[in-house]
Design a protein around this nucleic acid. Structure first.
Lengths: 334, 334
DNA sequence: TTGTATGCGTTATCAT
DNA sequence: ATGATAACGCATACAA
């Protein structure tokens, strides 16, 4: 039912090829006819059929975003919305569209394999990969341009990440400098790179300060509020005077546990979180936390991916984004 | 580079059409050859080119989701992630993919028009529409199957929504029954249907109870935490003993304002929110709020849309989802 | 039951 | 500078 190149050609008295040239800004077209054709296009609000374009050129101007829904909590953590926002905004500027897949673990492999081979997208951004995720292999084999959000230990893998290790170190170091002696940590999932690296940063800060890493002061969580609450309850008996917590959601849980135990923040226990999600400036007391620029990271990822697509190159990229420690009352700042 | 039907045909010693029949589960194919072909397909992990399929059939098995990013706060409110989750999960079950557009106000019209005409998607879900949104007209004119999330006052428009009016009435009525006399409200944006309808529900509850609607007890917000905080500060001087607040984010802001004014919840001021976002069971005190099933609503919307697409009908649909009042301590429940 | 031929709406190559 | 024509990979009407 929609108009085609052929229709526009007939209406403006030229051939299909000329119309195509006008649309693709080909220089070999007389200014006069260009204007004439463009007017018809505008009048009828003609939009070329992208499926046909895809078939003819091999490119769709669509990138895929794959979010393994099982990995993190899509509902409570604004991480993914922000990432999507960044990706989407950049795609708008470069005339790309985004295809979104929230993959469920049970279908993940099959679905990924479909995505990589059915030619719907020119490249993919894959968010929140596990350290040992098998889909990496599929990605590499597929020859499709891709970029991971989240560092990956393997060689020859394209990724983009915040410097979780440095950030974890910086956050813990802040507590060291403030004079805390029994600094604990609540970790994220250690099979996720972010969880692992933040934990390593904590360890490194203590080692660099010649302080012991006490196993009883390391409590594992899984990035959810609930797990932060539980982890803090386990930690309390070991009397930490400060805690570095691998994300803000868990920090809220930890604060809840401290409140229930009638411990004051930061007088009895100081807290540092990670993410600076919007609510963190509104907690009581406001949370000291590491700010990572999620949306810009998404934009950067999409930009790199589109560059790879358009240049046809697949050079390995490893980009590390900076972070910033936002100091608030939860660890004693005024 | 990827394999084509032709390749598979050659490899399995049949014709292109037979392979096509196998893939599309056509009954007219001998079980024997079906198995043979299927095996080749599996061995080579063949995936048909969807652009070509789209071109040949006129259908892409892709639906679009359009979220006007200007309308609400994508980052702090889990509404959109949940909606996306519901849509995505349903699409997985029906073998559809989703294309996501977060439209920015300045480009919105042009972008929508492109989406509706470039044949990338078979239909669209449009979230969070303004009451007077001009894109409705574009939708109707385009003849593309669509469904709005959010009631729309115009006739002959397909939408799906929670019953905001009933829910607002139910929430306010709860406060009436508990004996509160000076019940205030903090509204959402009144040019969004949800904001408007929840406000109407508040008014209706008071009228049905022969209580006056006092203008000074109505404070307008815009669904953000900050606006809830400001609105509550304005309300305090008029001494409300209870407040119905049009969403949970604003309720958090209001609770912050009350805390700063040294007013106790619910002893001095009782609170009812709307959304039951995950954090609402963890506030102090836990928030009484209206729960709407967002993800299921997204799934339902996608289901309806796909039905429209596959049946080729465009009958007007108006579906209203139920809500549930979750009573917690913020209005005096144990 | 299977194969052949045609068309879907573009782009791209080749003439003119 | 422009037009005719052949792909692109699939589905499908028709023939066998």
């Amino acid at each position: 039912m929609p108009l085609t190149l052929e229709d526009i050609a007939r209406l403006s008295g030229v051939s299909r090829s000329t119309v195509s040239r006008v649309i693709n800004a080909d220089l070999n077209v007389k200014e006069d006819t260009r204007r004439k054709v463009q007017e018809i296009i505008n009048n009828f609000n003609f939009q070329p059929n992208l499926a046909a374009k895809r078939l003819a050129t091999g490119r769709s101007n669509v990138i895929g975003v794959i979010i393994p829904a099982g990995v993190s909590d899509l509902f409570t953590d604004p991480y993914f919305p922000q990432l999507l926002q960044g990706i989407s905004a950049l795609c708008n500027t470069r005339d790309y569209s985004v295809m979104l897949w929230l993959t469920e673990p049970e279908y993940e492999r099959r679905m990924i394999s479909r995505i990589l081979h059915n030619s719907l997208v020119d490249g993919v951004v894959v968010a929140s990969i596990l350290m040992d995720d098998p889909i990496i292999q599929l990605l590499i084999e597929s020859k499709m341009p891709y970029i991971l959000i989240g560092r990956h230990p393997t060689e020859d893998v394209n990724y983009l990440d915040v410097d979780n290790l440095q950030a974890g170190r910086k956050a813990t170091m802040h507590l060291v400098r403030l004079g805390y002696k029994r600094i604990a940590t609540i970790t994220g999932k250690k099979n996720q790179v972010a969880g692992y690296d933040r934990y390593l940063g904590y360890v490194k800060a203590l080692q660099d300060s010649d302080m012991p890493v006490r196993p009883e002061l390391v409590a594992d969580g899984d990035f959810t509020e609930e797990s932060g609450y539980n982890a803090m309850q386990r930690l309390i008996m070991y009397r930490p005077d400060a805690v570095f917590i691998a994300n803000d959601m868990m920090a809220y849980g930890a604060m809840r546990a401290l409140r229930e135990a009638n411990l004051r923040i930061p007088e009895d226990v100081a807290i540092v979180g990670f993410d600076d999600i919007p609510a963190s400036s509104k907690t009581v007391p406001p949370l000291t936390t590491v700010r990572q620029a999620i949306a810009p990271m998404g934009g950067k990822a999409a930009d790199l991916l589109i560059n790879m697509i358009e240049s046809g190159t697949m050079t390995t990229q490893k980009v590390i984004m900076d972070t910033e420690l936002v100091v608030r009352e939860s660890c004693g700042a005024s």
